[in-house]
Design a protein around this nucleic acid. Structure first.
Lengths: 151, 151
DNA sequence: TCTAATTCCGCAAGATTTCCGAAATTCCTG
DNA sequence: CAGGAATTTCGGAAATCTTGCGGAATTAGA
């Protein structure tokens, strides 16, 4: 975890917002030379601080109208490996977290309709041998959804 | 929701992975002219299909070592407005969803330490008048975390 | 099948990024 | 706190990339 100075921090904030600004625009906003901006970005990428540059798709624009969080549990520890394999391979699963509490895992899933969700639950989750319980929380609306963090 | 052809789909998949590839690289991978790639991207942005281009920061690289999901509930409907205001203003909150089930809202929160989490809970959430219960699920490990969707 | 509209293409012009050496700054070490 | 090494910054030139355009090709509708 290298130390960040104020230029790095500003740069990271700006690039989280929009990574396609010309270096000249960033240079002007931050107040350092264009070539310095270039050096900094390269360094932030090399150091792993910036892990990638990604276009974000509006989910509803491509028919992904349903967002759900699914909690899953089992008691036999052998279930985990197969479960994770399935989950990693499924494009419906955006996130998969091992969590504390009554459940083993929390999934964030995006599909088109409730029908797709049903199919996902039966074909991808419940079909894993040993999965005992699931609880699905349907998202009614989303107030905030970002990857931008304070730096 | 405009119709997407196969070129659009490939392009969206590639740009979700990495939006900083030169148009020439995309042109080669997809097999259409550079200027066509340019036209397509412009169109996808104008149509709202692509909602932005964002640098992604590795959270642990900037000291955000703790990821938690927090479920919140209240009974007085007047609580919601104040709650959402707080949540939108807090940089610790990455996501905020109105969900079905026993709880009102689900938050995704990233902070540095358990101490920061404690502060967040007391200062940002519990201090909202009318908030009755919360349940916090700490993430032990994350197997998958993406914004890429199938298109 | 024909026409109109749209999309695709290559190329040239314009813009942006990258690379460089020199100056400035920062960071050790004594 | 001074000196020297290492790193960082900078402007500008060179290389690369994006953009805009007209004409060809393709698609869609009548």
């Amino acid at each position: 975890m290298a130390k960040l100075d104020d230029t790095d921090r500003q740069l990271l904030m700006l690039l989280q917002e929009d990574d396609r600004q010309p270096l000249a625009a960033l240079s002007e906003k931050i107040g350092v030379a264009v070539s310095t901006i270039n050096d900094r970005i390269k360094r932030l990428v090399r150091s792993g601080m910036i892990s990638g540059f990604h276009a974000r798709i509006a989910p509803e624009a491509v028919g992904l109208d349903l967002l759900a969080f699914i909690m899953v549990s089992w008691s036999n520890p052998k279930v985990e490996a197969i479960f994770l394999e399935r989950v990693k391979a499924s494009p419906d699963v955006l996130e998969c977290h091992h969590i504390t509490g009554a459940w083993n895992y929390l999934l964030k899933v995006r599909v088109g309709t409730t029908r797709d969700l049903e199919r996902f639950l039966t074909e991808t989750i419940k079909s894993v041998d040993g999965v005992e319980r699931t609880e699905t929380l349907i998202t009614l609306s989303t107030t905030k959804e970002t990857w931008s963090v304070r730096v």
